[in-house]
């Protein structure tokens, strides 16, 4: 089901973030909201997830109970192990035991099986972000939201994490929406890139990645950004 945002308005104090903003995100695609820091990308994700309230407008085609969200920071519970952190979000809202086989498969996918009994303080930054991804994958939401999940990670690790996301997407085909200000990430992971500017947020360009030469897409986005 497509996600349809219509005439969205939102502000913080005197700052207007969204003013009559509209966007349709088609299902089955991997959408990237691309733009500089502070342009309103995270606010848009938070509005989709119900973490912020809109002032006016409508958001259709989204069930907020079925969103898996990977935040910019790992947001792991320090006193729970890797496995317990993942189990925290799965299992019918705390009523039934989580699907062990699914959990094991996810741990294996992100190569954390041997670290499942470690505490977050015993992990590196990259490993913590892998746990954060694993938690989102284990939740198995219809929509997978990633808010600059690879920020601050070195290139090789970034590629590895993006591969985990792509593998998971191939397996489950969730509605993937992610934000970044790194053009390589955008091109590597998405099928549709929306170049945003703001605030107030507006769409400067919409670029489709699928079937195109990656360098050409990068060049196109960079040209657009220079105009922004």
């Amino acid at each position: 089901m497509n996600i349809k945002i219509t005439n969205l308005s939102k502000g913080f104090g005197k700052l207007t973030i969204f003013d009559d903003f509209s966007l349709t995100l088609e299902s089955g695609s991997r959408h990237c909201l691309f733009g500089p820091s502070g342009c309103g990308k995270t606010t848009l994700l938070n509005l989709l997830a119900g973490l912020e309230t809109k002032e006016s407008g409508t958001i259709e085609g989204i069930d907020q109970r079925k969103i898996a969200y990977v935040f910019q920071e790992e947001r792991l519970i320090p006193w729970l192990t890797v496995r317990e952190n993942i189990e925290f979000v799965v299992g019918e809202k705390g009523k039934s035991a989580p699907d062990v086989a699914h959990l094991e498969a996810i741990l294996e996918l992100v190569e954390l099986t041997s670290f499942q009994n470690h505490y977050p303080s015993e992990l590196s930054g990259g490993m913590k972000q892998r746990v954060s991804l694993a938690r989102a994958f284990a939740y198995n939401g219809e929509i997978l939201v990633l808010d600059e999940p690879f920020k601050g990670l070195h290139h090789d690790l970034k590629l590895k994490l993006m591969d985990y996301v792509l593998k998971y997407w191939e397996m489950e085909r969730p509605h993937l929406i992610f934000t970044t200000h790194d053009v390589e990430e955008a091109v590597y992971l998405s099928s549709d890139i929306y170049v945003l500017e703001g605030p107030p947020v507006s769409i400067k360009a919409h670029t489709q990645v699928s079937g195109r030469e990656k360098s050409a897409v990068i060049e196109e986005i960079l040209t657009t950004m220079r105009r922004v």
Partner: peptide, 19 residues
Amino acid sequence: KLLQMAKVYQVHRRDVFLK
């Protein structure tokens, strides 16, 4: 931020309290 994470993932109130 942990509470916000629990809210997004629809974690049961009892688990939020206990954990």
